[in-house]
Amino acid sequence: MNGLKASEVGFAMVLILLGSIVEGFGYGLSLGTKWPYTRNIVLLMVRGDPEAAHRVVATLVGLVALALVILAPGISTISGLILIVVTALFGMGTLYVLAGRAPAFVHGTHGLLAYGVFLIYLTGLAYPSLDFWTYLGAMGALHALLLAVFLGGMTTGQRGFGSAIGAFVQPKKASQWTVAAHISAGLILVATLGYMMPAYPIAFYLAVGQFAVGFLLFHAVSLKPKDPGIMVAFHQSMVLLMALAIVLVWR
């Protein structure tokens, strides 16, 4: 069981990072709006399409979750499987967001749910006797992190596929207002972790450093809106590290 839980945590992290690579290198609509598979999806994955790899890994996440439900049915394992199904459905919705046929809220919710999947299995592995939903309700640091995650997904969805946000001092369009909200959520996260010091020092320093990474990412999106590059994945990896630092109480 621990091996399956650890595998699920690893697959969930890989899935989130693959999603950021898809965004960073402009593969969001490489398979069009066809979902979940195309006839040659494995071949496309082998040839290096990260969107194809993203969907194959998502399938692995679902299969491991199903195995966990069969072997150890309970609130956490069943909740995890339900979260995966809902996340997958919103994943389909993100294709329509990028195609301009669905609101940015769908993209933000997809990112939020993806982190929910990661956290439910991480918590189950680290604290097997805890109820995840009770734990999540008591973790103010995770609330602040998940708010930033949601608004980060909203930022991607609001700007659309291959569109620049544009430099601004005062927001004038929806994508700029979303960026401003995302920055505010980042400040709330830093303030929350700072208030809780010295409980989560590594998470706090990562959150502070994330502002520099975010500035570089904004610059990359401005220069190459269709494929801003590796900074998207680096930005996402910092968020994953923050989540790990909070749940595992890294010092």
Rank of each mutant, 00 (worst) to 15 (best):
N2V: 11
A6E: 12
V9Q: 04
V9S: 03
V14E: 02
I16M: 09
L17C: 05
F25I: 04
S30V: 11
L31I: 10
T33R: 14
K34E: 14
W35L: 00
P36F: 00
P36E: 00
Y37M: 12
N40D: 14
I41W: 01
V46G: 03
G48D: 02
D49M: 00
R55N: 09
L60R: 00
V61K: 09
V64L: 10
A65V: 04
I70Y: 13
P73W: 12
L83T: 04
I84F: 10
F90K: 09
G91M: 10
G93H: 07
L95F: 06
Y96S: 08
V97E: 14
G100Q: 14
P103W: 06
H107I: 03
G108A: 09
T109V: 11
L112R: 05
L113D: 01
L113G: 01
G116I: 04
F118V: 01
L122F: 13
L125D: 13
L125Y: 15
A126R: 11
P128R: 07
P128M: 08
S129E: 15
D131K: 11
L142P: 08
L142E: 12
L146K: 03
A148N: 01
L151C: 09
G152I: 00
G152F: 00
T156E: 15
Q158G: 07
Q158K: 15
G160E: 13
G160K: 12
F161W: 13
A167C: 10
F168K: 02
K172C: 08
A174G: 08
W177L: 10
V179A: 06
V179Q: 05
A180P: 02
A185P: 02
L187Y: 05
L187W: 03
L187C: 09
G194N: 06
Y195I: 06
Y195M: 03
Y195S: 05
P198N: 00
A203Q: 04
A203T: 06
Y205Q: 01
L206W: 00
L206Y: 04
V213W: 05
S222R: 13
K224I: 04
K224D: 15
P228L: 10
M231H: 09
A233S: 13
L241M: 06
L241F: 07
A243H: 10
I246M: 08
V247W: 05
